[in-house]
């Protein structure tokens, strides 16, 4: 059997908004089954990079391949097939405001057109339970949810199609520490069961320490470091010093290693 291609493979990506260069020749590869944490200062272009990975934005130069296929493949069938295989959690949730929580999660399942209503209902209830929401909260509208609940519903929707790749933009921002920890546990457990790949942007050290097998640091428009926590911390760069070498960071990382 030939080795499976990396889940995400980014080669020489350049991005510009007008005159501002956001990414300068970025290379990044995420192997199938691993969890990569992407960190970087606010406005450093993390969300932009995720948008390029899921094919919402075309980089000015370079290639983005997901599961060995170009995300913006000219063949629409390939694109569709690739898109079915990942789930995305947007930074702001991006729930469909006209649909209830239940219908938001059911939406991708219904779009498949192969599942019966009872199975869809059970699946939605299951996903709600996974993200610690009560069944009756399925009736609520997105506008009635708290910020953290929006995140959890968005996660449930991202998980709906049982994706092989999860792309998460700040999944734990806005969750209380307890929920944040449960999120880490949930993703870890699902990953053990299903072996999916996770790419997540996060500023939260506990999430990072709890989940990420590798960490990539985006600063100065490049990936300045990519590797295990120990390797990244060893890189000498002001952002990394500030981000990882504070008191709190050291404690979190040590807790992970012990």
């Amino acid at each position: 059997m030939k080795p499976s291609p990396p889940a995400i493979d980014i080669r020489g990506v350049w991005t510009r908004y007008g005159d501002a260069v956001i990414h300068r020749d970025i290379d990044l590869s995420v192997a199938a089954g691993e969890t990569l944490g992407l960190v970087g200062g606010s406005g450093s272009g993390k969300t932009t990079l995720l948008r390029e990975i899921v094919g919402l934005l075309e980089p000015d130069a370079g290639s983005v391949r997901v599961f060995g296929h170009a995300v913006l493949d000219p063949d629409l069938r390939v694109r569709r097939m690739v898109r079915r295989r990942f789930g995305m959690l947007f930074q702001q949730g991006a729930l469909f405001s006209a649909l209830s929580v239940f219908d938001n999660i059911a939406f991708p399942l219904r779009e498949l057109r192969v599942l019966d209503d009872e199975l869809i209902r059970d699946l939605v209830l299951l996903k709600l339970q996974m993200v610690e929401l009560e069944p009756h909260q399925g009736r609520m509208m997105p506008a009635e949810l708290s910020g953290g609940m929006v995140k959890r519903v968005a996660l449930a929707r991202a998980l709906a199609l049982e994706p092989e790749l999860l792309v998460l933009d700040e999944p734990t921002a806005g969750l209380d520490p307890d929920r944040g920890e449960n999120f880490v546990k949930l993703i870890r457990m699902l990953q053990k069961e299903l072996g999916f790949t996770v790419l997540m942007v996060t500023h939260d050290l506990d999430t990072l320490a709890g989940l990420a097998t590798r960490i990539a640091v985006l600063a100065d428009q490049r990936i300045i470091a990519c590797g295990t926590a120990a390797e990244v911390v060893a890189v000498d760069h002001p952002f990394i010093r500030n981000f990882f070498c504070s008191e709190r960071a050291v404690t979190a990382m040590q807790a992970r290693c012990s």
Binding site: R121, L126, E193
Partner: peptide
């Protein structure tokens, strides 16, 4: 055991909940 866990989670959902 790993699969049992998944099945247990499926078993945990409350069937016939009153989602109107």
């Amino acid at each position: 055991p790993a699969h049992r866990h998944v099945l247990e989670r499926a078993a945990g959902i409350v069937a016939g909940d009153g989602l109107r």
